[in-house]
Amino acid sequence: MKMNVVFVTVAVIGLCFAGVVHSSELNLYNWGNYTSPDLIKKFEAQYDVNVTITDYDSNTTALAKVKAGGHGFDIVVPSANYVKVFIEEGLALEVRPDQMENFKHVAPQWRNPSFDPGRRYSVPWLWGTVGVAVDTDVYKGDINTASIVFDPPEELAGKINMAPEMGDVLGMALKYVGSEPCTTDKVALKKARDLLMAAKPKWVSMDYGLTEKMPRGDFSAALYWNGAVYRAGLAKPSIKFGYPREGYEIWMDNALVLKDAKNVETAKLFLNFIMDPENAALISTFARYANGISGSEAFMPDEMKTASAINIPDEFKDAGMFFPACSKEATEYYTAIWTELTK
């Protein structure tokens, strides 16, 4: 009996101790090919932690897995529209990044985003845009328009790749016809559908892997993510990124701690860690996207600091917007159009 009491006391003290001091494990659930190994090594060395990384390929996959429970992940990195879903569905833990030591480094425009007002849950990971990629050896005209892919010039017909992302393509098409993403306005949806159906014969593929395929000439124009286009441009300098003036998508992926995380203290340390400019720069250098932390540019490779694909030129700043997560009804419209498009 006495032994039992002693044992329980020791166990309780041990548990309290574990609560104060961070655990030695961290399970990060992130997009594939997106986590800088240098960043992880540095974090592991600094805090004596063992980090396990698991990949996912879409927001929906991540959400479904986390929702199902029993996943064992501590941190997930959803896109802006899905940060909102994670919070609304009660899957995120309110860890108050806005009160963390390194929050002062977060750039002013990312301090109070609509998807997480006051940054009570999430921390910027990386952000970027969806725009058009053009091989300027093939087409010399204006590239800052979505007509490159929706109403292509003759030189590019039959040489266009679309990112196979329903939300991005349809949202962009809706912006192009003068409407908004996730609209349930049938007139606009019909216009967008007709636009896409008419453009499809001029596309060669709807595929990933632009970084490798575009420099090799599999296609000469695309609707795609800016960082990948930037990397393709490093391989073949004539590949340029254009910002459609009709409207284009800005996205941001954000790290947040899950409600059923087992290593909350370590996870908090990690969120604070990635708001440090030098560490944020490591993330950017690996994935070639901007990060939302002021002062991190100083630690990035020189050619990234001025690249127009990564730093939005002032004249195009107003045309960018965050795409929301669509309602069930809008998603039904989207899926119907998408199925018709790819039938």
Partner: peptide, 12 residues
């Protein structure tokens, strides 16, 4: 691919 679409982006 159609099945994958419904379980993924189609959310159906």
């Amino acid at each position: 691919n159609l099945i994958e679409l419904q379980f993924g982006a189609g959310r159906n």
